[in-house]
Structure formats: structure tokens, C-alpha cells
């Protein structure tokens, strides 16, 4: 049950996309995300879809892996589409059946919204699929660094993210173990009404939180024992540096954004 969570999964491949500088990848992703909200036409979406397909093929990942990231949000996508379909008014009436009425405006807005969400999700999951968590947080730290002047703890935020990502599998494993232990005492996590099921999570969640706190405590102690005191004066073994292909990627993506906004 807990095994199909692919949140923030990274798949190592040797590809152009994997080798790009993480800062550039984050910035390009932001650029495209913003761009996606300005698309107003069918052709724009088609071009944006083409862009994402190009990136997928360049990343040497199978499109199935990327599509898998859409599964958890499928409900939201369908929900948005249905709401727009029936409740957005305007344009010609396409279908009328009792009190239900579908108008062309609703049809197109719903469709565009659904496509937009799908493109957004596949784009962002492409970012995490091709960038290791360490690179990702490193890149974020660099990008956030200028804001330190205004009191933003960039290094600390990045460190928190690294640690959180690092402990996802550990906590999943722990949850599995506790679940089994409670099942051995006759706990039932799978049947009953929704209230019963929510209540049955207490024997799982209490020990899980306790162990998370225990781990956090141990980790903090271990970090202090190794003289960790935040980002002040820290140097790195691997400095990030932008090279030609990074700027080319930016140019390529920016022209795409321009193109699909205009369309």
C-alpha cells in the first residue's frame, strides 16, 4: 500500500537533461510554469506539449514513468474539468439535458484547464525525475541566496529539504513495520467506515511520530557532534557552474515560451 508513492523520485540516466545545471533547470521550470498560464489557444498547448515531449525524449526516460506522476492528481484534473464543463457559461449551447447544460465556453475552459494541469505536473515531475535531491536543494540554495539579505535562511531551508527527502523512505519503512506489529495484535486498517478507519490510524500514527521525533533528535545531536552550525563560512567540494549547454537550454526554452504565448 505504501510502496507506490513516487513523490520526488529521481531516476539516474546519462542524458543532456540530467547533466544540466540544477539552477538552470529550476529557473527554466519556473519560466515554463509561468508561461503555461498565459497560453490561450489550442495551438499554444500543442506547442507546449511538444516541448515537454522533446524534453522527455532528451532525458532518456520512458514517457510511462512521467505519466505515472499524473495518477495521483487524476481526480483533481477530472474534477476541474467537470466543474468547468457544467458551470462555466458563455458561447453556444453544445448540449442540453434537463437542468444540465454544456456551453462551448465551459467545454473549452475545462479542457484547457485539464491540459494545463497535466502539463504542469509532468513538467515538475520531470524536474525531480532528472535532478537528484542533493542537486535540487543545492540549486535552490544558490537561487535563494540573494534573499539572505532580507533575512531568508536559504541554507537552512535547503538543509531541511534535503533531510526531509532523505527520511521519506525511512519513515515509510518504519510505518510498514509498525502497521504489521499492530496487525499482529489484531488491528484492522482496511475495513470499516471512514471514521473507523481514521480512528484505526491512531495506533500507527502515534508510534510513527514518536519515532520521527526520536530520529530528529538523534540526527540533530549527530550533526552538532560534527560541529554543524549552519551555512556560515561553508565551502563546497563541487561548485556549481553554468556552461554553454545551460545557456543554450535557457535560450531554447525561452523561445518556446514566447512562441506558445504568442500562438
Amino acid at each position: 500500500m505504501l510502496k507506490n508513492i513516487t513523490l520526488g523520485q529521481f531516476i539516474l540516466r546519462d542524458s543532456l537533461i540530467h547533466r544540466l545545471d540544477p539552477r538552470m533547470k529550476i529557473m527554466i521550470t519556473m519560466l515554463i510554469v509561468i508561461g503555461l498560464f498565459f497560453i490561450g489557444s489550442f495551438w499554444g498547448f500543442l506547442v507546449a506539449g511538444g516541448y515537454i515531449l522533446t524534453v522527455i525524449s532528451l532525458s532518456h526516460l520512458s514517457w510511462k514513468v512521467v505519466l505515472r506522476g499524473l495518477k495521483p492528481v487524476m481526480f483533481i484534473i477530472i474534477f476541474t474539468m467537470v466543474i468547468h464543463l457544467f458551470f462555466t457559461r458563455g458561447g453556444v449551447v453544445l448540449l442540453e439535458w434537463g437542468f444540465l447544460r454544456i456551453e462551448s465556453e465551459g467545454f473549452f475552459t475545462g479542457l484547457f484547464m485539464a491540459v494545463r494541469i497535466m502539463l504542469l505536473i509532468s513538467l515538475t515531475s520531470l524536474l525531480t525525475l532528472t535532478t537528484s535531491p542533493i542537486q535540487l536543494t543545492d540549486g535552490l540554495e544558490y537561487i535563494l541566496n540573494p534573499f539572505r539579505r532580507f533575512g531568508l535562511p536559504a541554507h537552512e531551508l535547503a538543509m531541511m529539504m534535503t533531510i526531509a527527502l532523505r527520511f521519506i523512505p525511512t519513515l515509510l519503512e518504519e510505518a510498514d513495520k509498525i502497521m504489521k506489529a499492530q496487525q499482529a495484535r489484531g488491528a484492522d486498517f482496511e475495513s470499516g467506515s471512514i471514521f473507523r478507519r481514521a480512528r484505526s490510524l491512531v495506533p500507527l500514527l502515534v508510534p510513527l511520530f514518536l519515532s520521527a521525533f526520536r530520529r530528529a533528535d538523534d540526527l540533530a545531536m549527530a550533526m552538532e557532534a560534527r560541529c554543524y552550525r549552519g551555512g556560515e563560512g561553508r565551502t563546497r567540494m563541487k561548485e556549481l557552474s553554468m556552461v554553454g549547454r545551460d545557456w543554450m537550454a535557457l535560450g531554447f526554452s525561452a523561445s518556446f515560451v514566447l512562441f506558445f504565448i504568442i500562438l
Binding site: 513495520k177 509498525i178 504489521k180 506489529a181 499492530q182 499482529a184 495506533p203 508510534p207 514518536l210 519515532s211
Partner: peptide, 8 residues
């Protein structure tokens, strides 16, 4: 009884 049962 699992390993480290006090954790449950």
C-alpha cells in the same frame, strides 16, 4: 512480538 516492540 516484533523486534524492539516498545516502539509500537
Amino acid at each position: 512480538v516484533f523486534q524492539y516492540p516498545e516502539h509500537q
